[in-house]
Design a protein around this nucleic acid. Structure first.
Lengths: 247, 247
DNA sequence: ACGCGGTGACTAAGCGCATAGTCATTCGAC
DNA sequence: GTCGAATGACTATGCGCTTAGTCACCGCGT
């Protein structure tokens, strides 16, 4: 009878190694100590059970407070989600808008650094990033649009690097949009399964995915690859669309 | 005050091209006409607003019935979700367990076919697949475990092909687990952004991702790739772990 | 030292509402 | 007339958020 079956209790969530990450350091400055605790608790709850399955009681119980205490620090449950997603997206974007990448010489080096940092950031903050990626439909339309704007910027950072490499001949004549979406998919989808106590450190995974991204754009010697069962059907992966409506 | 803000009305969902896919044909046999309509409506609602934000009224209104009608065909809302995810996972798995792939000659050909079919299936059924991927936390623990078992099988299909290629020297000496996860990430993450009215047909995207998967495993000529800023730190991407706990 | 008014964090209790699910009854095809 | 499908009115419950009030603490005049 209308019981909301959150599958993880606060105690289970506290101990679960799959919900351990380094997202505490995301909101170290802008919030007071209690508000930070509430955000951390909310991240765990939202990541484990989803925004709508999480009650204000769950969040506040995670820091040993009463439900009403949440409203001393945040005006609504939705705004808690908004702050999490906003900060998450802002920090991820800032982490790939660094001089180190811009000033790296070749597009290949830039792409390698970009993919390494993007992947490692998402691995390090995979719990918060999971909320950022999969709980957006709990936002109001206005807040959702703000987050989309941040995502557009992230997209452009990738697009610029890949487009540069294609333009100057460093990369193969690939479809920029498709490759960018593929690289982003790798860097994002890992938050669905990654865990810090798994076999790969964030840096190792970043290194590996940077290699994969490079392989995506590198020219292949004509007879290097194995035989293609499909001869040539005129539907090759080059310039199929100018700018697709990337979410 | 406790208003659940589902952001999409039934009418909006009916018309939104982002919620159009071919998932109708998934449950053509096992259910009656009305039950199929309810499943289709539930898929749209769950994909648009999430399981917990969807009411039984939303689902039944999508087919012009009263809320109570849902309980004529399904014992609970959770079981509607379970049927969707079960059938989705079963069909996706069946779609890559075909003789066509097993009997293809080289591991490269098998991987190409596998990735093509896996990607195209998820693109064609991206709305239902989105529910299958992102709404699993609405399931009871028992049902969740059943789905995990199906996912494990899917994993193994990929692992077998890649491991074969590595064993017989067709592929480079890559880390099988990492490559499999990367390929699965590409094939799965597309359901987050794909739309049938976008620039790529399911087949084109499958073709493109099959190329990417091949590039992931193909040996690179020693000086083919651009200079690596990292010389050799002993942390190369080879055999870091035997079998990781893939979700 | 002390009292005193002010302040902000926090709580207990609960309001108003919406939800998942129930059930006696009706409808409609055969 | 029978029987399954569908319904409208209903229940039990849980939800987000509010309200009235407690408590610890602060500055400050005396």
């Amino acid at each position: 009878m209308a019981k909301r079956q959150a599958r993880f209790t606060p105690q289970e969530m506290e101990d679960d190694p799959r919900l351990q990450d380094q997202s505490q350091d995301l909101w170290s400055e802008e919030f007071g100590e209690v508000a930070r605790g509430l955000l951390a608790s909310a991240v765990r709850c939202f990541a484990a059970n989803g925004f709508h399955a999480t009650t204000t009681r769950d969040i506040s119980a995670g820091v040993g407070l009463s439900p009403a205490a949440l409203y001393v620090h945040f005006p609504s449950k939705e705004l808690v989600l908004y702050e999490i997603t906003r900060i998450g997206h802002e920090r991820a974007l800032a982490h790939i808008q660094v001089p180190e990448i811009k000033e790296a010489g070749s597009p290949a080096d830039r792409l390698r650094l970009l993919m390494r940092r993007y992947t490692a950031w998402h691995a390090r903050h995979h719990v918060a990033a999971r909320v950022c990626q999969y709980q957006l439909n709990g936002l109001t339309p206005d807040h959702y649009d703000e987050i989309r704007e941040l995502r557009r910027h992230t997209n452009e950072v990738f697009r610029d690097v890949v487009a540069d490499g294609v333009a100057d001949g460093t990369f193969a004549q690939i479809d920029v949009n498709r490759v960018v979406r593929g690289a982003l998919s790798l860097g994002i989808d890992l938050v669905r399964w990654y865990r810090l106590d798994g076999p790969d450190s964030p840096e190792e995974l970043g290194e590996f995915y940077a290699d994969l991204a490079l392989k995506m754009v590198t020219k292949t010697a004509p007879d290097e690859q194995s035989a293609r069962p499909r001869p040539s059907n005129g539907l090759n992966h080059t310039g199929s669309s100018p700018v697709s409506a990337a979410k």
